[in-house]
Write a protein that binds this DNA or RNA. Structure first.
Lengths: 328, 328
DNA sequence: AGGAAGAATGTAAGCGCTTAACTAAGGCGG
DNA sequence: CCGCCTTAGTTAAGCGCTTACATTCTTCCT
């Protein structure tokens, strides 16, 4: 069923049907009613591809994330989706699994869709991508990676600062041997997190950091914790790169009969809902995902971001049950 | 940058460029190389809308889920996405939040995109939808709702049976007062779950079921558990409609100082990864999401499902730590 | 050398929609 | 009663691709 067929049945031109469909230009009420009736009868739905092609624009924005299984990304996606829907847009999501190759593929696919805007919320990056994106004229916002350019906005969280807060806090509780539970050590922004913890060694006398990485998942958190705890002198505190892995680490601790925080302290990162439902509830670092999502919407939808822009977010420590003084 | 412009620069016709792009029809190696070079130089990406319009087909399939925040749906989505990617398709996801209105909107949007196939993995339904879908000629698969038709496949899990297994098991442990933690009591398939538990009352002498519903989330599970436990004669076992809510229920129990399973037993449903990371690990019912996802892919991609089809899956009880004999 | 078969490429007609430009029909003051 | 503005509709030119069909080389056999 096409626009043309609808027009024929309603005895008007395609232009008129298009007008009532998009509510552009005047149409006599009786004509409009007649057309609407036909549309109803034949159950007509405009072809989105034809619309986008002819109109030269699209009512969709894209969101690319590294790991949709991690609630952190899911939360951002949800906020962006809500904002987009409110503005009459819908969102197309892509998941890269932290693979730079898939990032490239995803971005190309998004560009092929000629979207109205693109949010790239990932930790991996491909050097040539920024250039490729900046030549397009759609608004783009990066989270965690990339560099501001024309039409490209950047949002970053000061992870160094967040990690530093965690390190200082644990140090003040007497912890000296700290294990870092991470994932994807080779990815820039992720590596920076680990590095931030390492840097704390210099500020805090006697601090000793060991590192283990696995996949970004519950299982990965457990695996990394297992590796750390199997070392000759296991750490007394586990700093996890995010809450999801922290919950995995908690599981391993429990499996070994170690109590948290009495025997080992654990910290997460992100402050996702799950962190409050962990046993014990996780001490973590709050990343304002709501704010991030809204900023993304503003940049993409309202387009105030034609100029270069960069937002930096300062994370806050959230104390809960999973941390305590080191056992004597 | 358009196909035509590429053709001009490569001094060939658009047809030839299209041929090398889609690898359809013969092209002399030197010509192909020349065209590829131009494409590379100008960083050309075909317009997906034009491609779909002209080609009359799309390389995307749609997946609609009720609640992407619930790992159950996420798992299915992942499996479908993997399968689709392997077949050279990509997937468009939509989330309804259990709202029939949003289901209708989402389906219409999917149809407007003229996708190659559509999977509807939801618990809500709109009566007119089936008809609307069956008039289209794209393969559709429903999970949990709908009815088989031409081009419409159905996958359902025998939830009644799953719930019955849980009820029998708890009964055998001596539990008589059972609380049901659910969500969206008005939605058909969900309501059926609650009803299945109620039906167990008749089979098991002395069994007493009370019900509470909240949102499908960790918080919802906690809320519903709170309501149940606040009653004059609180249940000794909580049967949760899914693992996510069960984890929320666990949290409430812990907050009240009740031990699981010593004071109260808890069961989940779905057997998502999280259920193994809960404290204590959840007794649950396994739903083979992998299999469901693969079946969806088969129906959508291979199109063996032109005829009516229905798959019924029998769920299996998984015993873990969260259930035990009722306290004397 | 001539010509048929096959390979390589070009031509042009859409795909279903939007929209600029144009026409027709009322309505109104002068 | 006429010119002019407004409102209602129409026509037709694309948007950027695909593809059936036509055309132009190449081969290579006789």
């Amino acid at each position: 069923m096409t626009l043309e067929e609808v027009a024929r049945r309603a005895r008007v031109s395609t232009a008129t049907v298009s007008r009532v469909l998009n509510d552009t230009g005047p149409v006599k009420p009786t004509t409009r009613a007649r057309i609407l009736k036909v549309i109803q009868e034949v159950n007509y739905r405009p072809n989105l591809h034809a619309q986008s092609l002819a109109g030269g624009r699209s009512r969709s924005v894209g969101v690319i994330v590294s790991n949709i299984e991690n609630p952190f990304f899911l939360d951002i996606h949800r906020v962006v989706e809500d904002g987009a829907h409110a503005a009459g847009f819908d969102v197309i999501m892509a998941n890269t699994g932290y693979s730079p190759a898939r990032l490239v593929t995803s971005i190309r696919l998004m560009l092929a869709r000629r979207l109205a805007g693109l949010a790239v919320v990932v930790s991996e990056m491909d050097p040539a991508l920024i250039d490729e994106l900046s030549t397009q004229r759609i608004p783009v916002v990066f989270y965690d990676v990339g560099a501001p350019r024309k039409n490209i906005t950047n949002i970053r969280v000061d992870y160094r600062s967040g990690i530093a807060k965690v390190a200082s806090y644990l140090y003040s509780l007497g912890h000296r041997r700290i294990g870092y539970v991470g994932h994807h050590a080779t990815l820039g922004p992720i590596h920076e997190r680990a590095q931030a913890l390492r840097d704390a060694e210099e500020r805090h006398r006697g601090l000793d950091v060991s590192t283990a990485t696995a996949s970004d998942s519950l299982e990965g958190g457990r695996d990394a914790a297992r590796a750390l705890l199997s070392r000759p002198t296991p750490p007394t505190a586990l700093v996890c790169v995010n809450d999801l892995m922290a919950v995995g680490a908690l599981r391993e601790l429990r499996g070994r009969g170690l109590r948290v925080p009495d025997d080992v302290s654990v910290t997460g990162f992100d402050n996702v809902t799950l962190s409050q439902y962990a046993v014990p509830a996780l001490t973590t670092v709050h990343i304002p995902r709501e704010q991030i999502g809204r900023t993304i919407c503003d940049c993409l939808l309202r387009h105030d971001a034609a100029r270069e822009h960069e937002f930096v977010i300062e994370p806050e420590l959230v104390l809960r049950e999973s941390t305590g003084p080191v056992r004597r």
